[in-house]
Every structure is written in C-alpha cells, then in structure tokens.
Amino acid sequence: MKELECRNWYMRVVMEYDQKILPCSMTASLVKFFMKSAITTLFGEISSAFPLDILKFDEESKEVIIRVPKDNYAKVRAALTLCSATMLEGAIIPIIYTVEQASSCLISLDGPQKQLA
C-alpha cells in the first residue's frame, strides 16, 4: 500500500459566546475573522496568512469544522486555546474555543468520539 501525504488537518471546534453581547448574529465569515485575529494576536501576520477554511458552521450547536495546512495546525490550535476575547466594533466579546476533535482525515470527525469525563 502506498503512503499518502496528508496536507491538511481538520478540527472540530466548539465555541462558547453570549449571543446578546454580539452586535449582529454570528455567521461563518465572522467566525473566520475572529479566528484569524486570534492567530494574529499570538503568532503574527505571517501565520495568519495561511489558508483557513470554514467547512461547516452550525449556529445552534456553535460547532465549526475548519481545515488548516499541516504545518500551521499546532499554531492554530494553540491560538484558539489561548484566545479569551476578540474586538468587534469597539466591543470586547469574550469567546472560548474548545477543539474537541482533530485529525488528518475529515471522515475521522464523523467517527466515535473520545469520552473523557
């Protein structure tokens, strides 16, 4: 069997935020903006220039599935963990990101989840 080189990593991220503080409703492009600003705060503009794709955004369950290049994965995950709040139109919005699953194959996110608690 030949070895495939996985170029991307996929993460399932769950966000916690208060909808009432937001001036508008949360959309996929807003999520992308928040994530990029978190990466810029911690690692600078060069790391945030890497592609970050939002594959799925579910507003009810506040789950996002994102795709990042393999080399940037650790930095993106650390930036999302250490982010506590973002600025939007002068208001500070506290957001907490939890990366529940991460894998090099997207199908793995559909598989059985790890039960820690």
């Binding site: 495939l4 991307n8 996929y10 996929a28 492009s29 999520v31 992308k32 794709d53 939002i54 594959l55 799925k56 955004f57 599935i65 194959c105 997207l106 199908i107 793995s108 996110l109 559909d110």
Partner: peptide, 21 residues
C-alpha cells in the same frame, strides 16, 4: 477521501469556492 468526509458530515462543496471556504 476528503470528499467522502465532507458528504458524511453534511458539508456541500461548491464549484468555485466561497469567501470562507
């Protein structure tokens, strides 16, 4: 393989790409 994953998770891919994806 990526396409199979997208379809299993309910993600519809586009032909040209959007601003977020």
């Amino acid at each position: 393989l990526e396409y199979i994953g997208c379809s299993s998770l309910g993600i519809k891919l586009t032909e040209e790409g959007t601003s977020v994806c």
